[in-house]
C-alpha cells in the first residue's frame, strides 16, 4: 500500500474478555490490520479496560487466555494503546494493574482522539 493511503484506524474496545467474543475478535482483527501498515491505535474504555488486567488465568474455565497477546503488539509496530482514566477509576483499577504499557487519557481527550480518526471499529 502506498504511503498516500495511510489512514488512522482506531479499534474501540468496550467489553470485558471471556464473557463475549468481542475482545478476542478485536485482537485478531488488529493483528491482521497490522499487516497493512496503517496508523492503528487501540482504545480501551468502559468494561474494555478489563481486557488488560494482569494475572488472567483461564485454565479452570477451559478458554484460551489471550491476554499475553497484548504484549506482542509492540512487535507488530502497534504502540498506540489508550486507556480511559474515568473507566479505570470507575472500576477501582490503576495503571499499575495493567499488563502492558498504555497511555492513560481523560474522557475528553479520548473523545477528541476518536473524532480525529478516519475509521473507527467498535468491539
Amino acid at each position: 500500500m502506498s504511503e498516500g493511503t495511510v489512514k488512522k484506524f482506531m479499534f474501540v474496545n468496550r467489553k470485558a474478555p471471556y464473557g463475549s467474543v468481542y475482545a478476542l475478535e478485536s485482537l485478531e482483527v488488529v493483528l491482521i490490520t497490522a499487516a497493512f501498515d496503517q496508523d492503528v491505535s487501540l482504545a480501551f474504555l468502559d468494561d474494555g479496560v478489563y481486557q488488560l488486567v494482569k494475572g488472567q488465568d483461564t485454565k479452570a474455565v477451559g478458554m484460551k487466555n489471550f491476554s499475553p497477546t497484548y504484549r506482542a503488539l509492540e512487535g507488530y509496530d502497534i504502540e498506540k494503546l489508550y486507556v480511559e482514566r474515568e473507566s479505570l477509576e470507575a472500576r477501582g483499577l490503576t495503571e499499575e494493574q495493567l499488563l502492558v504499557d498504555v497511555q492513560v487519557l481523560s474522557q475528553a481527550d479520548m473523545a477528541s482522539l476518536m473524532a480525529e480518526q478516519d475509521v473507527v471499529l467498535s468491539f
Binding site: 493483528l31 497490522a34 499487516a35 484460551k64 487466555n65 489471550f66 499475553p68 497477546t69 504484549r71 506482542a72 512487535g75 507488530y76
Partner: peptide
C-alpha cells in the same frame, strides 16, 4: 510467551 504464532514480518 504471546499465545500467537507471529506474522512472518514479526
Amino acid at each position: 510467551e504471546y499465545q500467537i504464532a507471529p506474522a512472518v514480518r514479526v
